[in-house]
């Protein structure tokens, strides 16, 4: 039986606010995108592997996560949904799973309360517990872990935090470059180079700034790409994403 290398996973990123799809720029400025369900349908038909739904606002203001969006998509499509945004307890995770999420994304709360990763992975298994990391270039640390939608520093180097969360029970890591997010100017090449030197034993997904205009060589440590703006604003297809990267 052939043991082919796994193909690059392409994950469409959806950011929601009050049940609407939005597109943050560098985690801050926001553009509103209409026709959520039509868009999701085009992404699914266009060959994405999975969906990741973030609710930036709930993480900042602790408002309820956009459960309805998760529910609507889960009812209509047969595709894996990872969902997060303000998940700070097993109850928050349970709500997302009750509406239709298959995996839980934890970000800010994992930094504040490391035990959260452990307690969620004990309930739903390591494989379904994903931790998202907002990475920002730092003179001192190489790349630093940021929280609160990329606004607050933590003083932790990205490589060190990845080792720690793997031990705590993270089954997957979703990495986004704060500097490249939403600007469509290409993936963060410095972050890619930095990540290639980290010890990572879990699937690692990279997001922030994907553009088909710049061909990128990816190290094998990266298993997939998280793509937002290119899909929302340019109507791109998954095959365009796969065609513009190659493993080196």
């Amino acid at each position: 039986m052939p043991n082919k290398a796994a193909p690059l996973r392409v994950i469409a990123r959806l950011d929601t606010k009050n049940g609407r799809l939005i597109k943050p720029v560098r985690f801050e400025g926001v553009r509103q995108i209409d026709n959520l369900m039509e868009r999701v349908e085009s992404y699914v038909l266009g060959g994405i592997d999975e969906l990741a739904i973030f609710d930036v606002v709930s993480s900042l203001y602790n408002t309820p996560t956009e459960l309805e969006v998760v529910g609507e998509i889960s009812k209509a499509f047969s595709i894996c949904i990872a969902a997060g945004g303000g998940v700070s307890s097993i109850n928050d995770a349970e709500k997302l799973l009750r509406f239709g999420a298959d995996k839980i994304l934890i970000n800010t709360s994992a930094v504040k309360n490391k035990d959260l990763i452990r307690s969620i992975s004990r309930e739903i298994g390591t494989q379904s517990t994903a931790v998202s990391i907002q990475a920002k270039k730092s003179e001192l640390l190489g790349f630093e872990v940021m929280v609160e939608a990329g606004r607050q520093q933590t003083g932790m180097a990205v490589c060190d935090w990845m080792s720690e969360i793997q031990d705590l029970g993270a089954g997957e890591i979703i990495m986004t470059s704060v500097d490249s997010d939403g600007v469509n100017a290409g993936l963060d090449s410095q972050l890619i180079s930095y990540l290639s030197h980290c010890q990572v034993d879990r699937p690692l997904i990279l997001g922030g700034g994907f553009s088909p205009l710049s061909h990128v060589g990816l190290p094998r440590v990266i298993d997939g790409l998280l793509v937002g703006s290119f899909f929302h604003l340019k109507g791109g297809l998954s095959e365009d994403v796969r065609a513009s990267v190659s493993y080196v």
Binding site: A6, R9, E50, T126, G171, V200, R202, P203, D223
Partner: peptide, 30 residues
């Protein structure tokens, strides 16, 4: 490779024992 298998993977099916049209089909694993 990583220690967690996540994604769509080819699955080889013994169609003589399991009623499925294709001997190879992709399913989502996690």
């Amino acid at each position: 490779v990583k220690s967690v298998n996540i994604g769509w993977r080819e699955t080889h099916i013994n169609t003589a024992q399991f009623n499925h049209a294709d001997p190879v089909h992709s399913f989502y694993y996690c």
